[in-house]
């Protein structure tokens, strides 16, 4: 056996394989086009008004007048009880006029503990009834204090939270945050969710 062969034999093969594994695993990541490159998904520009359809789509990086929160930033506010969290994930109510005996099962929803769920308030245009529901929900959650910090969220790539945060600003709330990652980013970070019911 040559001296080189002996060295290779003595070295744990697992470590060498692991080393290369890291290199191979990194290749696809390195091959991703950078910002501005072909195929790079740049966030869309902020529209002037509300988003009116196709709500499950990439969202802007900003919301004029609001703070945009990362998951760690949202977590800090949540741990410090420093903001009121508002979930706007939509869920249609059971239609009032279903035949008697119709089996109905609302899809269960897990949300950020302590948050207030105001479903269907993130659409781009709201019926007066729905807008009243949003206004009264926000008023109840903040105790009528428009400077109370608010965090609006739903799920990742959901314009409804963007719309709702924009709407809260229009109502005169002065400390509005938008948490675009929503419950998806929250649970991906290992943070707890709990079963929620609409207000």
């Amino acid at each position: 056996m040559t001296a080189r062969g002996a060295r290779a034999f003595a070295r744990p093969r697992l470590w060498r394989a692991l080393g290369w594994a890291i290199v191979f695993a990194a290749v696809p990541a390195l091959a991703q086009p950078g910002p501005g490159g072909d195929g790079a998904a740049l966030p869309p520009e902020e529209p002037a008004g509300y988003r009116l359809d196709a709500y499950r789509a990439p969202t802007p990086a900003t919301l004029a007048g609001a703070r945009v929160l990362s998951t760690p930033q949202a977590e800090t506010l949540w741990r410090d009880h420093a903001a009121v969290f508002i979930d706007v994930l939509p869920r249609p109510p059971r239609p009032a006029n279903l035949p008697a005996g119709t089996l109905w099962r609302d899809a269960p929803h897990a949300s950020i503990p302590g948050s207030l769920w105001l479903p269907n308030t993130g659409f781009g245009a709201l019926a007066p009834e729905t807008e009243d529901y949003l206004k009264s929900g926000l008023a109840a959650a903040t105790g009528g204090d428009r400077m109370r910090p608010l965090v609006l969220f739903c799920q990742r790539q959901c314009w409804m939270s963007w719309n709702a945060a924009k709407r809260a600003l229009s109502y005169g709330y002065g400390n509005v945050s938008w948490y675009p990652e929503g419950t998806d980013g929250w649970s991906a970070a290992g943070l707890p969710l709990e079963t929620a019911e609409p207000r």
């Binding site: 070295r11 060498r16 394989a17 692991l18 290369w20 594994a21 890291i22 191979f24």
Partner: peptide, 27 residues
């Protein structure tokens, strides 16, 4: 350790092992 491992050519078996780990790791 990684740098040391990379300084030597790999046997075919090691390449297969490395690729397997790389592919499965994210899952």
């Amino acid at each position: 350790m990684v740098a040391q491992a990379l300084s030597h050519p790999l046997s075919r078996r090691e390449v297969i092992a490395a690729l397997t780990i790389a592919v499965l790791a994210p899952v």
